[in-house]
Nucleic acid binder design. Structure first.
Lengths: 355, 355
DNA sequence: CAATTCATGGCAACCGGTTGACAAATGCAT
DNA sequence: ATGCATTTGTCAACCGGTTGCCATGAATTG
């Protein structure tokens, strides 16, 4: 066998223009096979099935591969196997900072385990979400749905094709990662009780939000335990604006402490109350939910029940990857702890205004 | 319909039916061909090359495809063609809210044009960034780099393989999308001058940030025009914490107005100054940069030079997709306008404190 | 009516790895 | 040296579309 150099290995020369496609002509396992003097299939085995070939051949092939700067073609690999080393993440709303941390957690875990993350958004619409999910399904090994808006049945249908992990919602038969709101809400309510509050309002989130209901239930339970009265108010949208609009209802309710479905609502509510001359926390205590980015930018900084969202993203990705690797529960819910983050927007009630 | 559990992750050695079958057996063009009574290649043409087959056959095939709920296999398509209908976006730091609008803009544009977005992060490291870029290159049609930290040369090298668009930096020979800071900074400085300020401090960003230098230059130019004095201060990190740490230098500088490299620095600086009893904006005016999410949560809400980041993401994606489609400039910079968003953190100077 | 386009569909060779089946080579005990 | 089990490498058939080339028949033209 002659020591023949590969015609392509001349990076120093001028514009290596090949007729036809864009100038990428990567080495293939066939090139390696030729250099190493073995069959392409042996190369394939050496590179993917450790132990299937002798140590000697293994080394030979690895050197040839390194010399040619070989990289597998992911599509060629995906075609027969169906595996892509990629998973999808669908979030309800990219604009919503709640998902920032989830995305970050998932992305970090993905790259750490040599996976690639593909991102899609549902714009809060069940239909768009389903479309996006279907589209992604074709190209990924698995899917994470963060706060999905589609039916349980649709989720289960998707899960028949490939592993699916759900964040922020519990779906029977599907692996889920859900913040356990009870601890955090319990701490919040005890703190309210200790500060002399008697009546707590809950500003709810979107009606289709599973989480919003859990939070309301958690508040009711905690209030019963602490012998406080709980009232429920609705919001139009779970945004800063939506929060502003609830200010009237909050005042009308007579509650002196408010727990909101999320931080955005809390921030909007606080802004509107302050604009109306109401002191926070002297006259009304406000507690948000999630501890999103920016929750401590406000004056006073927002007290909030922290959901470890980054951790949720990480945990969901880890679970998915375990599932793909063959280990891990095919169902069941993983609960992560929530905790109260005490800042300035909650405190002792001062009925007469400033102390 | 029976309640049948799906043997999801059971890769052990069960009664495996078909090898490689990932759980769902999708229809292929061969199935369609059989149903429609034509050759697979005709199906392929009917589905991708409009006009290549007769209207009659076209219809026949489309009906068969619809009946079988056919979806192309992206890998099978990508293998011979190299096209994936996917592009990559690499951001310097997923934690940084600056990038969220960019991500959102790119994602929206992508799905709107039937592309899929894959996301990666460089963690502010040039090396990680390069690795991520190389990895992505194999699976995408093109790449968007938002605030890249790697060399110009590396960027150009990547661009040889596939189209690359850069956001927030100008690289010779590469298509770029860059906010034009001059208009926004000009407005900010004129406003400062009108409010009686004489000396303006610039709190710079990371040394390797191309943008930070542009902003400093813009400030110098505007100050010269308005006959104000400009001084430059450094920051350790472009974060809220970094902003807090610059407070001492700001006070020592004697400047009454401050422009910061980004909003996070501005927010940190404001928090620290207020904690020291300094009134904003009565004693010091603060102007941030970017108008990130949460910039209006502060008290007073932050005045800032808005970079239309979502627009940048959109524009970059649009440019990339045009490039992939064959149209569009292969190089040249697209400038998007910045503007001053006047909120409460800047205003007339009151040397004696409160009016 | 013959000659020449032109539109249409079929054939088959790819793209680059993976993998079951099998043969050759090796090891080991007899 | 023979027989048998075990490695190790090869062959060839995929995976599912794409596309250059060719044959066919219809349409156009002289």
């Amino acid at each position: 066998m002659t020591e023949h150099t590969v015609p392509h290995a001349a990076p120093s020369s001028g514009p290596d223009k090949k007729p036809g496609r864009a100038g990428k002509s990567h080495a293939t396992i066939y090139d390696i096979a030729k250099v190493a003097g073995v069959n392409p299939s042996t190369v394939s085995r050496a590179l993917s099935k450790p132990g299937r070939v002798s140590a000697k051949t293994q080394k030979l092939i690895e050197e040839a591969a390194a010399g040619l700067d070989y990289q597998v073609n992911p599509f060629a690999r995906a075609l027969p196997t169906g595996r892509t080393n990629t998973f999808g993440l669908i979030v309800a709303d990219i604009t919503n900072p709640t998902f920032f941390d989830i995305i970050r957690g998932a992305e970090t875990t993905a790259t750490g385990r040599d996976y690639t993350l593909v991102l899609a958004e549902s714009a809060e619409s069940p239909a768009t979400e389903l479309t996006a999910a279907r589209r992604l399904m074709a190209t990924v090994d698995g899917l994470i749905l963060a706060s999905p808006r589609m039916d349980d049945d649709n989720i289960r249908a998707l899960a028949l094709a490939k592993p699916v992990v759900v964040i922020n919602r519990e779906v029977e038969g599907i692996p889920c990662v859900v913040p356990d709101v009870n601890k955090g809400i319990g701490e919040a309510v005890r703190s309210m009780a200790a500060n002399g509050h008697k009546k707590v309002a809950y500003v709810a989130g979107p009606p289709q939000s599973w989480m919003s209901e859990r939070r309301w239930e958690g508040l009711q339970a905690a209030c019963e335990w602490s012998r406080l009265e709980a009232v429920r108010l609705e919001s139009a949208k779970p945004t800063v604006d939506g929060g502003r609009q609830t200010a009237r209802d909050v005042r009308a309710s007579g509650a002196t402490a408010v727990l909101t479905y999320n931080d955005l609502l809390a921030i909007g509510l606080m802004q509107e109350l302050q604009a109306a001359g109401i002191l926070v926390p002297d006259q009304v205590s406000i507690v948000g939910f999630d501890d999103i980015f920016g929750a401590d930018f406000t004056t006073p900084p927002l007290t909030t029940v922290r959901s470890p969202l980054g951790e949720c993203g990480e945990a969901a990705a880890t679970r998915l990857l375990d599932l793909l690797g063959g280990s891990g529960d095919p169902a069941g819910t993983l609960r992560v702890e929530t905790e109260l983050v005490l800042r300035g927007s909650s405190g002792r009630i001062m009925p007469n205004g400033r102390s």
